[in-house]
Computed example of a mutant assay.
Amino acid sequence: MLVRIVKMSFEPSKIEEFLTNFEIVKDKIRTFEGCNFLELYRDQNNTNIFFTYSYWNSEDDLNNYRHSKLFKDIWAETKPKFNAKPEAWSVDKIASLK
């Protein structure tokens, strides 16, 4: 399993547009083949910063998503709203406590 974390910083005036679009596409992302989990977080202090946190079966599954029409459409809608370059990490889960 691969965990993908993406940090995005938005122009404050574009946040509501981003959130509206995320509501529309979140189920499509979550049900994309190989995606097992998806969450969106918002920084408590810098409220224009958001993070997506997703679980993928494999790097191939993540890459299939990143090269899909779905991703390209979402990225075309999202990218113009950024006020800083997004950052992304693919990580392995070491421990999980419940």
Score class of each variant (00 low, 15 high):
Thr78Pro: 07
Ser13Leu: 07
Ile24Leu: 13
Leu2Ser: 01
Lys26Ile: 01
Ser9Gln: 09
Leu62Asn: 04
Lys93Phe: 00
Ile24Thr: 14
Ile74Pro: 14
Ala76Pro: 05
Ala84Asp: 13
Tyr41Val: 02
Ala95Tyr: 13
Leu97His: 10
Phe71Thr: 03
Ser54Asn: 05
Asp92Cys: 04
Lys98Ser: 12
Ser90Phe: 04
Pro12Cys: 06
Lys93Ser: 11
Leu2Glu: 13
Ile49Gln: 10
Leu19Gly: 07
Asp73Gln: 11
Ser54Arg: 05
Tyr65Ser: 06
Ser9Val: 06
Lys81Met: 15
Trp75Ile: 06
Val25Asp: 08
Asp27His: 14
Lys26Ala: 07
Val25Ala: 02
Glu87Ile: 03
Ala95Gly: 01
Lys81Trp: 11
Leu70Arg: 11
Glu77Asn: 12
Ile24Pro: 06
Lys26Pro: 00
Glu59Ala: 03
Leu38His: 04
Arg30Trp: 02
Lys79Val: 04
Phe18Leu: 06
Phe71Met: 03
Leu62Ala: 06
Ser54Lys: 02
Ile5Asn: 01
Lys14Glu: 10
Gly34Gln: 10
Asp61Ala: 15
Ser90Gln: 12
Asp60Leu: 13
Glu17Gly: 07
Trp75Asp: 11
Pro80Phe: 01
Glu17Ser: 11
Asn64His: 12
Asn63Ile: 09
Asp73Tyr: 10
Trp89Ser: 09
Ile49Phe: 02
Arg42Ile: 07
Pro86Trp: 08
Met1Ala: 09
Lys69Ser: 15
Ser68Ile: 05
Ala95His: 12
Lys26Gly: 06
Leu19Pro: 09
Thr47Met: 13
Gly34Phe: 10
Val91Trp: 01
Phe82Lys: 08
Ser90Thr: 14
Ala84Gln: 10
Trp56Tyr: 01
Lys72Gly: 10
Cys35Thr: 10
Lys93Thr: 15
Asn36Cys: 01
Phe37Val: 01
Ala84Asn: 13
Val91His: 03
Lys93Ala: 12
Glu87Asn: 08
Glu33Asp: 14
His67Trp: 05
Ser9Ile: 02
Thr31Cys: 04
Glu11Tyr: 08
Glu17Arg: 11
Phe51Met: 15
Ser58Leu: 02
Lys26Asn: 14
Ser68Thr: 04
Lys14Trp: 01
Glu77Pro: 01
Tyr55Lys: 03
Ala76His: 07
Asp60Ile: 12
Tyr55Phe: 00
Trp75Lys: 15
Asn46Glu: 15
Glu59Gln: 10
Cys35Asn: 15
Arg4Cys: 05
Asn64Arg: 15
Glu39Arg: 08
Arg42Asp: 00
Phe18Gln: 13
